[in-house]
């Protein structure tokens, strides 16, 4: 790749661009900024994880505490993504396919968790289920553990990942309209047949997109989970929480080894997201012609 690519090769004056030195300054500024603030932090994760070699890395990941954190993270993510998948599809069906008053308000409510600090997302469940919370005494009386246990972690995760699937589907389904569903109904299909044979195939990429982002957030959530988890070693530590604990104990290789798994999850999610966005754009093109 040569520097020539930086410039417009045609001799004709392009009215829509800046002089070459200006262009180079702008590109350099953007790239340096992104490198310092994004690329280096990402690189440091892997550099630290492998700073004592591959065997130390593998050992860190095969530690029972690490394995338990991985298991818990997968469990919590599965439940959260599953429930928000079902909710998201139903919400999108009701919101996108029907007209009713208060629709904008409902969408705002669905979006709400995006504007709530993760710490507050955890706090609300402490206030409900904690020892001094509204349901705390009753739960204690019945020996049910929500807070500092898996149910609390799952609830907080569902809260922070609540909007992802619905948000990915609502605009897509609104744009697709109801004509294909009406056609299916008038051809004698039942509601479920219509959904599974007509609606679902049309929204599958959008659905996957929502699930992907929902999953990434569910596995990576730190603030909300940190508040409700209680940090019980080997029991209520998810991967992000274990990263924190090990880091604070100066076990950098172990901490960054787990962090590197989460970073890889983020990278895979990004790649898949890019591919899906391209798919969705293509879908849009097909509809437009």
């Amino acid at each position: 790749m040569s520097l020539q690519q930086l410039t417009v090769s045609a001799p004709r004056v392009d009215l829509r661009t800046e002089p070459r030195p200006m262009r180079i300054v702008i590109i350099a500024t953007a790239l340096i900024f992104l490198t310092v603030f994004v690329v280096l932090p990402l690189a440091v994760v892997f550099a630290q994880a492998f700073s004592r070699g591959v065997s130390a890395y593998v050992a860190a990941l095969s530690d029972p505490e690490a394995l338990s954190a991985i298991r818990l993270t997968l469990l919590v993510a599965t439940i959260s993504v599953g429930s928000n998948l079902v909710f998201g599809v139903m919400a999108a069906w009701a919101i996108a396919k029907f007209d009713f008053s208060g629709k904008t308000f409902l969408i705002t409510l669905v979006d709400l968790p995006f504007s709530v600090s993760p710490v507050i997302s955890g706090l609300v469940f402490v206030l409900l289920f904690g020892a001094q919370g509204y349901f705390g005494p009753w739960l204690q009386g019945h020996d049910i553990h929500v807070l500092f246990a898996v149910p609390g972690i799952t609830l907080a995760t569902i809260f922070v990942t609540f909007p992802f699937v619905a948000r990915a589907l609502i605009p897509l389904m609104q744009e697709q309209g109801t004509q294909e569903e009406e056609a299916a109904i008038s051809l004698g299909a039942s509601g479920l047949q219509t959904f599974f044979r007509v609606t679902l195939p049309n929204i599958k990429w959008g659905l996957l997109y929502g699930v992907l982002l929902c999953n990434a957030r569910a596995m990576g959530e730190f603030g909300a989970v940190s508040v409700v988890s209680g940090h019980i070693r080997g029991e209520t530590n998810t991967m992000p929480l274990l990263v924190e604990i090990l880091y604070n104990e100066y076990q950098f290789v172990s901490s960054f080894a787990i962090a590197s798994l989460l970073a890889m999850l983020a990278l895979v999610t990004l790649v898949a997201k890019t591919v899906l966005e391209r798919r969705l754009d293509e879908g849009q093109l097909l509809r437009d012609d």
Binding site: P41, L42, V44, V45, Q48, P118, A216, M219, G220, E221, F222, G223, M239, P240, L241, V243, E244, Y247, F252, S255, F256, A259, L262, A263, L265, A266, L267, T269, L270, K273
Partner: peptide, 13 residues
């Protein structure tokens, strides 16, 4: 996309 805890330890380091 990067979990905040990962970003936190990375920036810190």
């Amino acid at each position: 996309a990067l979990p905040t805890a990962v970003a936190g330890v990375a920036l810190s380091s």
